[in-house]
Design a protein around this nucleic acid. Structure first.
Length: 125
DNA sequence: AAACTGACGTGAT
DNA sequence: CATCACGCCAGTT
């Protein structure tokens, strides 16, 4: 059998405004020195399977959203999701290194820095 | 309305 | 480990 069935998800008309707020709140809970993948954030925010929604929200994020530790969200491969050439790419690496995140071969080890929703929520860090 | 575009994820090659 | 192909989702063209 080759079915993959990661179990999509029914769900009906969601509200981008609401979803965005939940996603940003979730990201705010990631402690300094830790990282989470897009899919992980989506799941923790209550939108399983919406990794791309998280990406979109982060892309739209502005100063008006307050302090969002956006740099702590990377892809499931432990790599920076922003295009290599983009200036944001280097910025993200700089910010993460500044908080103690270690890069090995351009990748972050979830084993070492992976955030778990059960961890204490600094809520400010 | 159809096609295209991504700061995604996963399994196969 | 690098690529590719798909699946998925919401916003843009």
């Amino acid at each position: 059998m080759k079915s993959k069935a990661p179990k999509p998800k029914p769900l009906s008309r969601f509200n981008y405004t609401v979803a965005r707020q939940q996603i940003l709140d979730t990201i705010r809970r990631i402690p300094k020195g830790k990282v989470a993948s897009y899919g992980q954030v989506a799941f923790a925010a209550g939108w399983p399977g919406r990794a791309r929604l998280v990406a979109r929200v982060l892309g739209d994020v502005e100063a008006s959203d307050g302090v969002i530790p956006w740099q702590r969200v990377i892809n499931a491969q432990g790599k920076i999701a922003i295009p290599k050439d983009s200036p944001g790419h280097r910025t993200q690496i700089r910010l993460l290194k500044a908080e103690g995140v270690v890069f090995l071969n351009g990748k972050v080890s979830f084993e070492r820095h992976g955030w778990q929703p059960g961890d204490p929520s600094p809520l400010l860090d």
